[in-house]
Nucleic acid binder design. Sequence first.
DNA 1: TCTGCCATGCGATCAATGATACCGCCAGAG
DNA 2: CTCTGGCGGTATCATTGATCGCATGGCAGA
Lengths: 221, 221
Amino acid sequence: MIEAAERQLASSSDHEIATRAVCEAVGVSQPVLYRLFGDKRGLLDAVADHGYERYAALKAAQERTGDPVADLHAGWDGHMAFAQANPALYQLMFTPRPWSHSTARDRVTDLLVAALTRCAAAGALKLEPRAAAQLILSANIGTALDHIARPALFEDPAPSRRMRDAVFSHVLTETSARQDADPLRTAALRLRAQLQLGGIEALEPVETALLQRWLERIAQP
Amino acid sequence: MIEAAERQLASSSDHEIATRAVCEAVGVSQPVLYRLFGDKRGLLDAVADHGYERYAALKAAQERTGDPVADLHAGWDGHMAFAQANPALYQLMFTPRPWSHSTARDRVTDLLVAALTRCAAAGALKLEPRAAAQLILSANIGTALDHIARPALFEDPAPSRRMRDAVFSHVLTETSARQDADPLRTAALRLRAQLQLGGIEALEPVETALLQRWLERIAQP
DNA sequence: TCTGCCATGCGATCAATGATACCGCCAGAG
DNA sequence: CTCTGGCGGTATCATTGATCGCATGGCAGA
């Protein structure tokens, strides 16, 4: 019945379900639903918790590559992929509902805390795991909801990657590998911004123009 | 009528409104509502857009202190305060609804882009304004929704501040660089250091050599 | 094997709500 | 004065969340 509800939730255009339709799809009548879940809210909570099971299974299948920081990155991307694959379920799980008793979000937080604790064990964490988890999860949900609102965004990996880098660089200690990821490009971008901001006396105008074009070439991915 | 709907939305426990109740509160009958807004969705869209007006008024009242970066920080905090003061309206405005025609979020994005463009004019922005706005707004909404789900979080300013710092430090140039007496020279020095550190593929060797000499000329006192 | 009980499911129904068809009223044009 | 068009209201429909009382079937115990 939970799965029927989830299917109807995914196929409905307004992300709503009708208890009647769910019962008919399963072949029972309404009172059994109210006997099992007590309420429509109860059914939705059960759907959300079931969604967490799928989410946790996805996580368990992909995590633990040995490098906890790499696992963290994969976890972020997996979260976004889950949101893209199940938009309605995702909103049910991660959007605040005033009366929800679902523990989906808390349990996802616990998963994230565990992953972050592994990072902390490797000496890669600047904040305490719970605070870091709250930060990362909020950013991840915010980005995913934005992408759900405008699904075209899923095509471009840049926004998600930017947010991921912003949050992780604030939470993780700067390992030499991450620090040297692409310092050349950032330096080029910085110099180009300075050139555009103010003039430059050390070079001739023609040289400045050529330098600009070179910097653009350096800065391009 | 929009204000009545907003009041009912704020006082309702489940963040829902009944068209009947709104009409009764105003003293008209249902068909006028459907004549004015066409739909319950239309009414909610109108409420969301009206919420944007209040939001924009709040922004206009507090912005422009002279320092665009300080304004940006104040804008983040004001956004959080708005969410705390109007949780139901906030969710209506910023939570994805499948059929919504409200432009509230887009217009908030435009406000943010304007504020970021002022930062860019001051040389304080690393990304292009639209990308930065998308990043900041997603993080802001994600944090606000988290706080709405657990209102106790509003008591502790740390989570919001952490997220704000994380995102802003990724979007804005470092204050030390901005306060630097000669940012152009330091940027040139930094790029030159990067060039010497590792190779470069985007430029031909001859071009690289010439770039090196230019950078030296820029960096010379 | 029979009997009584209890849990489970169901038809019927209620209440609330979104949405609409149709009627009446009133202002303004002719 | 009459006609017409727009505006609002009454009554109503359809959908949906939620509940009541009954039937039925399985199981424990005599």
